[in-house]
Amino acid sequence: MARVWLFGKDVNTDQIVPGRYAPYMLKNEDDLRKYPFVEARPEFASTVQPGDILIAGRNFGCGSSREYAPLALKMVAIGAVVAPLFARIFFRNALNLGIPCFTADLTDVLHDGQEVELLLDEGIIVTAEGQRIELPPPPGFMREVWASGGIVPFYRTYGRFPGEAPA
């Protein structure tokens, strides 16, 4: 089972990883895994488990272009992020890194700390009580990028960008 981490709206990238903890500023880049939500939710980095999911309000990931914000979430193996609206750069960065993002508002459906199971391929969250929540299917190009494991392996495999006609 995965744990739900519930966040409000307008979670910005300074909350996800403050600029002071960028890899550029760290002696050991792997230490980035210690800093997701270091100030917004200090207990997060030490207790998050692989596969846990983030449920957030509107405009998740607004602010800076720093890819190390979603990278830090990838380093702690977040299973998915679900929010009704994602900030554009965060959404691209997460897609590029292969982090599943689903556009849905579950902030009133799930609660913080709830135990759930994410069936990624089916796009379904199942709660411990057996409730099945269908996530809206992402566009085809996103599934292609996820299937490749991110934009770099996608580009290296196909030699083109998503949505671009094959050469």
């Binding site: 800076s64 272009s65 190390y68 979603p70 750069i89 691209r92 960065n93 934009i151 770099v152």
Partner: peptide, 27 residues
């Protein structure tokens, strides 16, 4: 395209400036 979210700045001269992250900029 800039590796900085405030790359929208280039719109001051009528350019389409946009910020992207590490991987997009590397591409």
């Amino acid at each position: 395209v800039g590796s900085d979210s405030h790359s929208t700045a280039y719109g001051c001269v009528g350019a389409f400036g946009t910020g992207m992250g590490t991987t997009d900029v590397a591409l």
